[in-house]
Amino acid sequence: MSDLVRLLNVFCLLSLLAVGGGRAVLPEMQHETVAVHHWVTDDQFATIYSLGQMALGPNMSMVALIGWQVAGVAGLLVVLVAFYLPSSFLVYGCSYIWDQFKDNPWRDAVQRGMAPITIGLMLAGVHAVGKTACINSDRPLDFNIIASIVALAVAGILIAKHINPVLLMLLGGGVGWFLLRGG
């Protein structure tokens, strides 16, 4: 029971902190779920995150799987409600108020000021997941080299060419199966 309350607290807060989309709260989410509450391991967090990249709809729905790991179906539901409801209420209310500030120049200032912070948080998210998936000191060196090459190759291909990332995720899985067994 107390786990459900803790899930509720953590994910409600993350919901309201997710400025610029869910990816901005990845580092904080990893810290809370792995280091503070020990709900999942670093490896599980990285895997759950990558499963979210392959699923339909908003990728951050992967938070549901963390809730599930902790407290089954109840945990899944609590986390979904906690992660989506607070920000949704806020948006609902603000979309009324926002229209009245249509011509207020501070609206632009808030947007431009927040943009680099969101990007910095997303970079920290790359670092948080990359630390486990690509530069993991618990893994052998060749594992880390192969995983880093896969990550950089995916980023490079996507920068050069607009293709569905799910195909590259599956390709990454193929490379992993072929080269990372026993790693």
């Binding site: 990558s50 392959m54 486990t132 995916v154 996507l158």
Partner: peptide, 9 residues
Amino acid sequence: AGVAAAAVG
């Protein structure tokens, strides 16, 4: 592990 690396990319 391969998928996770690709997701980082």
